[in-house]
Design a protein around this nucleic acid. Structure first.
Lengths: 212, 212
DNA sequence: GTCTATAAAGCGATAGAC
DNA sequence: GTCTATCGCTTTATAGAC
């Protein structure tokens, strides 16, 4: 019995990269096989329901990664401005300064949304929720914070499109430079937060992103 | 000799709808044949270079439509606020309140960007250029107007993603409500423009969108 | 858990009749 | 300008050996 060539985590990582690059329809089994170094039959061993299951696993993995690296730190004890800056720098890595797309966005735009709609919606609802909490902590009223959280995620996703559309990574650099001030405008209770270790009283319940 | 079933304009319109819905890879020849009511061989009669040529024609058609219905009115003699509101209402129709994607954005995110990169970049550069001119006309300094034009297009594209991702058309409604004020903040020389027929002196050269 | 081999369907594209 | 029929290839997916 041959031993596994890749851990499941590494395997799903390669899957995500392939889907992010080629999209759902464009990520063929042969491309996936090449990207993972596994034969097609081996891939079906790990994912009996085929490509659809692989894509679902990729979305789940991206969501978990965001949970650990983005959403969590949006609710940290650091000053709100610092949390937002950290988010943007994490995103810059994740998207290679705008060269690589966001998997849930990519899937949201075409027909595969019907397959993964719930996972995609959860991803963005969670993101908006976390950012909204950061902005509430900065002293903004809850309704304003929520509205700006939508704005922020929209700007980020729109910027990723422009980066690729114009083939110009300066779009992402401008986002990193401008977004913190835009999100925190008129909220500068942020001086309260510049003292390290000064843990804030967090709101009891996270504001839930608007859903229909 | 059978007569044409669809005018070329109608044919390309059907092509655009199919590509917008399924993406480049997802829009198979059979789907295109069904959507247009033509056989595959007939499609190759109109587009000898096949699917790639069809997609290029679709992008060109979308760009022309935007030129006539969006970009042109961004440079009209109406007050800047009115031009922006008109743009947003035209976009609401074009995107069915956020249910339908933007074709150049869709193509920008996946691998087909390598095929259509120049057309995609032109589309967005033209849009940013037109919006920047509107904002310059509103009295904003040229560098601020250009930055905000990027912001605006980013917000629009990001909103389209969120509409589909959250399956919630209220995202687009919020955009229509908020974007004009955000783009025109601090620019209210706009009172100068509320008088109809008061044609402004337009800048000599349109500001060119940043390109690399 | 991986592989080779292969099935069955769908793909983009073409030939040639009308 | 449209059609039917088909080509050659790729696709997703499976069978079965090791």
């Amino acid at each position: 019995m041959p031993t596994a060539m890749l851990s499941r985590v590494e395997l799903i990582e390669r899957l995500s990269e392939t889907f992010r690059r080629y999209g759902y329809e464009g990520a063929s089994m042969s491309r996936i096989a090449k990207a993972t170094g596994l034969g097609k039959a081996s891939l079906y061993h790990h994912f009996p329901r085929g490509k659809e299951q692989m894509a679902a696993a990729a979305i789940d993995a991206v969501t978990s990664w965001f949970e650990d690296n983005v959403f969590l730190s949006l609710q940290s004890a650091h000053p709100p401005r610092q949390r937002i800056t950290a988010m943007l720098e994490t995103l810059r890595d994740h998207h290679d300064s705008g060269r690589l797309a966001c998997l849930p966005s990519l899937f949201a735009l075409a027909e595969e949304r019907t397959l993964f709609g719930e996972a995609i919606a959860n991803f963005f609802a969670r993101w908006i929720d976390g950012l909204s909490q950061t902005l509430t902590d900065s002293g903004l009223a809850r309704d304003i914070a929520l509205r700006r959280a939508y704005d922020g995620v929209e700007r980020i996703q729109g910027t990723l499109i422009l980066c690729r559309a114009l083939a110009d990574v300066r779009c992402f650099a401008a986002l990193v430079a401008d977004l913190p001030d835009q999100l925190l405008a008129g909220a500068d209770r942020s001086t309260l937060w510049t003292t390290r270790g000064n843990r804030p009283v967090l709101p009891q319940q996270p504001a839930r992103a608007l859903r229909q």
